[in-house]
Amino acid sequence: MKIENSTAIITGGASGLGEATARLFHGAGARVALFDLNRERGEALVGELGENASYHEVDVTDHAAVTRAVGEVRERFGDLHVCCNYAGIAPAVKTIGRDGPGDAALFAKVININLIGTFNVSSIVAYAMAQNQPLDRDGSRGVILHTASVAAYEGQIGQAAYSASKGGVASMTLTMARDLARNGIRVNAIAPGLIHTPMFDAFPQEVYDSLSRQPLFPVRLGQAEEVARLARHIVENDYMNGTVVRMDAGIRMQPR
């Protein structure tokens, strides 16, 4: 499936990996719809991109809000072809906290946004994609891309909730691809390693430097644009389906 002339929904599209993907896809001729809670940043980005970009204030866990926004995108841009799920949070949740058992409410919040939110958006978008006319002789109707993490496999201390959520995303990918195969919809996931997003800018320099030395090669943090390029390849490579691709410069995360 070509990015050019496609319509892509990008959750978490106002910053980080979502912003980088939105910029790349839009530059390649796609219509992009940004789903994000940061209205100021989302509207500013759409203003910068100009034509064929839209912002929608969406909580990915809210079924009605997602359904409404998907309808708005279809009304403006027509058929949906691509969905990139980047929206997520990563607060620290330990099994035992300083004052007692771990924060179960915060654990549930992480699962709700990162895992259930991914399913919620994907199922609503897939229903819309299934109504498309086939785009090629294979019967392709759409591509869904999830964001897992190397934490799904090597979660560090304090990442109990995040690792569980991303492990769920990774495990869900093949099953969702099997569910949607009859509809001509491919489903894949990227499992990034240490990628330089705005979150890293808040770290002390010594922490930033320590993280930058951990990848095997190249010895640096990954760039959001590199993840975006992989996202484009997965969308355009019609034989990629049901897989989780690590993008981590060979890193294997240590306990801390």
Rank of each mutant, 00 (worst) to 15 (best):
I3F: 01
G13R: 04
G13E: 05
A20S: 10
A20L: 07
H26V: 03
D36I: 01
N38V: 01
G42Y: 04
A44F: 03
V46S: 00
N52S: 08
S54N: 06
Y55P: 05
D62H: 11
A64L: 11
A64P: 07
V70W: 12
F77A: 15
H81D: 14
H81Y: 10
C83A: 15
C84L: 14
Y86K: 12
I89Q: 09
P91D: 07
K94P: 06
D99V: 12
G102S: 15
K109E: 13
V110K: 12
L115R: 12
G117S: 13
N120Q: 14
S122M: 12
S122P: 14
I124P: 10
I124C: 11
A126K: 10
A126D: 11
A130K: 13
P134S: 08
R137I: 05
D138C: 01
S140N: 10
G142P: 01
L145A: 02
L145S: 04
H146M: 08
I157A: 12
A160L: 13
A161S: 13
A164N: 10
G167S: 10
S171E: 04
S171L: 09
M172N: 02
M172E: 07
L174C: 01
L180R: 08
V187A: 02
H196R: 14
D201T: 11
F203W: 09
P204A: 06
P204C: 06
Q205N: 13
D209W: 09
S210P: 04
P215N: 06
P218M: 11
P218I: 08
G222Q: 10
V227R: 05
A228E: 05
H233L: 08
H233S: 08
E236F: 01
N237F: 03
M253Y: 00
Q254F: 06
